[in-house]
Nucleic acid binder design. Structure first.
Lengths: 358, 358
DNA sequence: CGGCCTGATGTGACCGGTAACATAGACCGA
DNA sequence: TCGGTCTATGTTACCGGTCACATCAGGCCG
């Protein structure tokens, strides 16, 4: 039971296939009665036009491709949703290749699949550097409008969209400093992610600027998840001079850490202030509600799709790279408190000790 | 700068286009040296075969379509990931249409887009009934292998994959009953979702079977989210005879409810036992860790894709519908406690009162 | 040594649309 | 009345692959 074609419809309606094509595409200059005959034939044959044939002859696929890190990461899932919505609003279809952890070779496979399908634009949301020196990607970027999301990858002519991670890290740390904290630890994401490094840089910036006995205390993790946060917090609790505040680079790291703290009888925010990054929905119903930085993930995706679709055509393509950076505003909730006297003294004592040692 | 075609490669390698095709498809009966010449030409021209043209002539698209409810729902996001993985393992590409809340008309649009793209199979993961009487869908289901996920939609010849929600609801309630609870409320998802109704049925089954002064107390919500859970819990706290346990039909509803309880000074599990449904990752780091039912969402998606791909071809198609039901096992954590004496008396007193009234 | 088989390669049609151009009336003004 | 313009429709080629079949050169066998 094969699908009817445009010629089957034409035969049934006793017109030429071209007239059918005109009806389908809402072309004017078709007599109402002819149009009606054709429409009926289409309905009776359950004709559905073939996007495949249409793409081949018109060389337009109306399809965008997005290669992303595993969408089980909240950030990327939202970015995909945003890109999808923006694409669809403009009549485009988004096909997605989500790279699962451990299957990083799929990056190339996906990219290739998308090029074979003749996508008209590319969004690359892969933070790691593996793809960077790939000639397949480089070639694609010169032919197609390409936007790189949340990544360092350098591609001539490709625009970048990202969160201002450095500033975010800076503001998170400043917020803790403003509450009197001096011993501030950070739990980072994987340091081969540009976002993790940038947030760490922001953290360092803030501490450096504060001077005054502050000192970086960095606890890196291999992923952004709960488990890692939990273990990182346990390592921090075991250190000689325990911090009074922790800046976790993701909400999941923060929530994992908080569960470890709870298990050890350390209260948040009384004994330990905590700040996250992301603003995932559950952050606000946690106990205490998590102070964090909201990442506008959906907007990142939307902006990426818009840039791809509005890129100038062919010869008019720019060779310059533009960076679009979105702010991640601080959302103050209940997980940060002013440092307690005791801890203050503790910190002060520690500072003196350190000063003496130098 | 347009893409090279198979004929360009042929010209450059001084062979016929058919030979190039043979090389691309790894066909044997090509001399090693010819193969080498062709391969070099492919590389030099940066030739990438066109899946569009290939699909048109071979009438195989190697594409599956999945129409789902908004993937911001954890269940559907995981199901998509599972289906994607299963499809890809078999050399298929999954294209996704995610219906956002409020844009339910898109169902048809997406379905149509997928049919136009000549998908070779369909996964319909749309719980609401809107699509049910759609002739487009019905027609598609007779032509293509189709699987319906987490939905009541009746389609001749389409298999169904779902969670055993009724049993899940039953077991959740039984678990609470086993801890001595008698006044057990349930916070449901939207009751036009089959899963919500089935869980509610399971809850009722368990109460009915327990008899003995139990009585349903149903608090329905319009979505599955935190906010709704929060407000539902507030309504429950305001009722005259406050329940001692709540079965929330999703983890988000449960977490939202717990945040409301906390705000009202009601401790979980001491004053109120709580059980969820889903087992989202953060459930285990909550305070207390949430007892819940784990939905094997990934497996649902994988199974759906497998069924689509392994469906018998054409004439051998079954007209019967098979239902595949996956268990949602109980995950015991810390949010359910044995009922306290005081509440026990309370419940007993209430039971007597009710008996008297009858 | 001719016939036949086999492996390597080439030829032309075809998949189902779109694009460009052709054609045939109808209408219209000079 | 006639050429020109406009509208409705038809004709043909083409997009870039695959498919079925044709061709051709060796090798083997009787």
């Amino acid at each position: 039971m094969n699908r009817a074609t445009i010629r089957d419809v034409a035969r049934k309606a006793k017109v030429s296939h071209q007239t059918v094509s005109r009806v389908i595409n809402g072309h004017d200059s078709v007599t109402p009665e002819t149009r009606e005959r054709v429409t009926r034939a289409i309905r009776e044959l359950e004709y559905v036009p073939s996007a495949v044939a249409r793409s081949l002859s018109s060389s337009r696929t109306h399809t965008l491709g997005m290669v992303t890190t595993d969408v089980s990461d909240h950030f990327f899932a939202e970015a995909v949703a945003g890109a999808e919505a923006a694409a669809r609003k403009r009549g485009y279809f988004l096909i997605i290749g989500s790279i699962e952890p451990g299957a990083e070779d799929d990056e190339r496979t996906y990219l290739r699949l998308m090029l074979e399908r003749r996508v008209e634009g590319l969004i690359i949301a892969v933070p790691r550097l593996r793809l960077a020196d790939d000639d397949l990607l480089a070639g694609a970027a010169t032919r197609l409008p390409t936007v790189v999301v949340a990544s360092d990858i350098e591609l001539p002519g490709a625009d970048h969209v990202d969160i201002d991670n450095r500033k975010g890290g800076f503001e998170a740390t400043e917020h803790l400093l403003a509450h009197g904290h001096r011993r501030i630890a950070t739990i980072t994401g994987p340091l081969d992610w540009p976002s993790a490094r940038a947030r760490l840089d922001g953290y360092r910036d803030a501490l450096r600027r504060a001077g005054d006995g502050t000192e970086p205390l960095v606890e890196p993790c291999l992923d952004w998840g709960l488990e890692s946060g939990l273990r990182a917090a346990e390592r921090l609790l075991a250190t000689a001079r325990r911090p009074t505040a922790i800046f976790a680079q993701s909400d999941l790291l923060a929530l994992g850490a908080m569960s470890a703290l709870r298990a050890h009888g350390v209260r948040v925010p009384e004994d330990m202030s905590m700040i996250g990054f992301d603003d995932i929905p559950v952050a606000q119903v946690f106990d205490p509600p998590l102070t964090t930085l909201r990442q506008p993930m959906r907007e990142v995706g939307e902006l990426a799709a818009r840039l791809v679709l509005e890129a100038p055509e062919g010869a008019r393509r720019r060779r310059t790279t533009r960076h679009h950076v979105l702010r991640a505003p601080l959302v103050v909730r209940g997980s940060v408190a002013r440092i307690r006297e005791e801890s203050d003294q503790h910190a002060a004592k520690a500072a003196v000790k350190r000063a003496t040692r130098l």
